[in-house]
């Protein structure tokens, strides 16, 4: 089998100890995905696996054999930034930028969860089909991504503009 990363197939590492994060950064040179804590506590390493957001630091690369991984490097199309990437620039969604790839991958996965009707702990009506993306909802759903620069307001503005508009359509 193979791990598909941003559309290209790679064979899984021989050594089962290699995390998906280390495979990406150290072996494939895809250094956009960041290592913050390496223990699941910061979200900097967030990538999408078959469209779902996960932490690559707590994933063994062999676990995603046969699946499709999308990293920050795989988001632009024909050289054009993903709309959320553009929105992060417009809204100053970062200072140092270290948490940004994880924030963006996480928000893309989060938006897919919302479309599917996944509730959050701040959703008042668990029976509702379509959660309303209030700022409280956005902050709760993005709480797995820490930003030590504290760019949270810009991050939320960028995500709100990209996805709350989508929800309204």
């Amino acid at each position: 089998m193979a791990i598909t990363i941003n559309g290209t197939a790679y064979s899984p590492p021989q050594d089962a100890r290699v995390s998906l994060l280390d495979l990406l950064r150290e072996r494939l040179g895809l250094s956009g995905t960041k290592k913050g804590c390496d223990q699941g506590a910061c979200g900097a390493c967030t990538v999408l696996v078959d469209g779902e957001r996960i932490l690559s630091c707590l994933t063994l690369a062999v676990q995603v054999d046969g699946r499709a991984v999308t990293t920050i490097e795989g988001l632009s199309e024909d050289g054009a930034l993903h709309p959320l990437q553009q929105a992060f620039i417009v809204h100053d969604g970062f200072q140092c930028g270290y948490c940004t790839p994880g924030q963006i991958c996480s928000a893309i996965g989060m938006a897919a969860e919302v479309r599917r009707g996944v509730p959050s702990v701040v959703t008042a009506d668990l029976g509702a089909d379509a959660p309303v993306l209030s700022d409280d909802e956005l902050r709760e759903r993005m709480s797995g991504n820490l930003c030590r620069c504290g760019a949270y307001n810009g991050i939320i503005d960028a995500i709100r503009e990209t996805y709350a508009t989508e929800a309204a359509e």
Binding site: G43, I54, T59, S106, S120, L126, G127
Partner: peptide, 23 residues
Amino acid sequence: IRTRYPLLARAILAGASGQIRNM
């Protein structure tokens, strides 16, 4: 789960983060 056992849905959603709950 959401409609019959809201305490279970809420307990899970109160744990960890979106990424970790997906895994």
